[in-house]
Nucleic acid binder design. Structure first.
Lengths: 249, 249
DNA sequence: CGGCAAGTTGAACCGCCTCAATGACGGTGG
DNA sequence: CCACCGTCATTGAGGCGGTTCAACTTGCCG
């Protein structure tokens, strides 16, 4: 339990200072953790009666399939992330989740989760806050797809993932394990795997980032952030990438 | 008050059967409504201390600006929609809202909203449900930007807006007022206004949709839905566009 | 009638896609 | 130990969708 609780606990405590008993309540709530093989689809779009999970280890992806066989990845989930909370509220899932690597998840019984929010409103606020951040990430991704070039989009994603991973203690913002192949990356970026390959080459040749053997190394974080027009306000108010609008003490 | 309450009430009661007193509580909660001119930006990205509103009349847009001057519209808000709920949770807004037409909004005091959720859990569930649907709309928009052509994307948006408007009693799914010019539409679709123009011409020539003088007329809903690969499960479980997976009685 | 915003059209360009191979690596079985 | 295979990465050539730049038109309002 050490690793995992750290991921979720670390994340929540960054948004909302929680008491020990609140964190413990959340930890006790979880059902026994389950292992799943890579590529397992564990939440299905358009199916009702879905459940919510916390990702404890490994990587997962949230995506929608298209009728012609295409796919759009909406977001990557890393340890500490909730998955499927919305599908419980809407009673049917609006997108699917699948394991990217072998993963460990634990289910959250949503009825009991809501009960414990009543008893501990601050816990509820922290969880809502985390869910809101995940939504903000999706919105930023939407902006990438709509208005950024392939190069900027890729750079943006790699910066974002570094920061998210750092926040839960899995690598640093500029060097982290990234077990996602170029096909998956293409589905996330709205590109072809072929073009992703060329973009990665360009980023490497410009000595900005290297992605090789499932490992990302950011060589020049400042130039990369400039290229991507990265502004991490949506992730974390205190990020190193925030330069403007210091209106928050 | 008649019109507005109808919009929000109609919407909520589609997701969640509410008692009269629950609806009344929500209505009483609202602060006096305020008018704003078109183009007024009333929620600013990256500013803290934001408030939440219900849109009562007119159209608004949620968007993010890019450093170079570009803009990406994340979603259009129509009467009955919440705006800025997330900015309250995150303490700082992650995107801006502006009036597209002259609008009428009423503020929701969020502290009191949360209180009344405690007293009436079903009301809270209904509001969360509506918020989740808005998130699902954003996700579908992301898929459009990532994996649909300009033609499909445009068709998809026009179908979606028709259904959303019909649900709140503002026009029908195939004919409705759409006070959005081609520049705004371009910013929503991740295109150039010039290309939007050509796309609209194509849709018109194929006798699928006409958008003229701020009015949308869908001539051939079936062909349009087929072109867009539209599947409205994310909007409403009982929509006319749902053909597959009848696993929900 | 003049002025401005929005819509419309053309021509040239380019970012990304498509199709088609080839290369690198690890695993597996003969 | 090597031949074979599957998966993923890489590269080239050509084409298309959407952009850019630059008019021109239409409609509205003063």
């Amino acid at each position: 339990m050490a690793l995992v609780d750290d991921a979720l606990t670390q994340k929540l405590s960054h948004f909302y200072p929680l008491e020990r008993e609140e964190i413990d309540a959340l930890i006790r709530l979880r059902r026994p953790s389950r292992r799943m093989a890579a590529e397992t689809e564990f939440i299905q779009e358009r199916q009702s009666g879905q459940r919510a999970f916390i990702l404890e280890e490994g990587w997962a992806s949230a995506y929608k399939m298209l009728p012609q066989g295409g796919r759009q990845i909406i977001n990557f989930a890393i340890p500490g992330d909730f998955m499927g909370l919305r599908s419980v509220l809407l009673r049917t899932a609006d997108h699917s989740f699948a394991a990217v690597t072998p993963i460990v998840v634990s289910e959250i019984p949503t009825a009991e989760l809501l009960d414990s929010f009543r008893a501990m409103p601050r816990l509820g606020a922290a969880v809502l806050c985390a869910a809101s951040r995940e939504e903000a990430i999706v919105v930023e991704h939407l902006v990438s797809l709509g208005r950024r070039t392939a190069l900027q989009r890729t750079a943006h994603l790699l910066i974002e993932l570094g920061l998210r991973l750092e926040l839960v203690g899995l690598g640093s913002a500029t060097a982290y394990a990234f077990p996602v192949n170029q096909y998956l990356l293409a589905d996330a970026l709205g590109l072809t795997s072929i073009h992703v390959n060329r973009v990665l080459r360009t980023l490497r040749e410009r000595r900005l980032v290297t992605l090789r053997h499932g490992y990302v190394t950011i060589h020049d974080a400042d130039s990369l952030a400039e290229l991507a027009h990265y502004h991490g306000g949506y992730l974390n108010q205190n990020s190193r990438y925030n330069r403007h609008s210091p209106d928050e003490a």
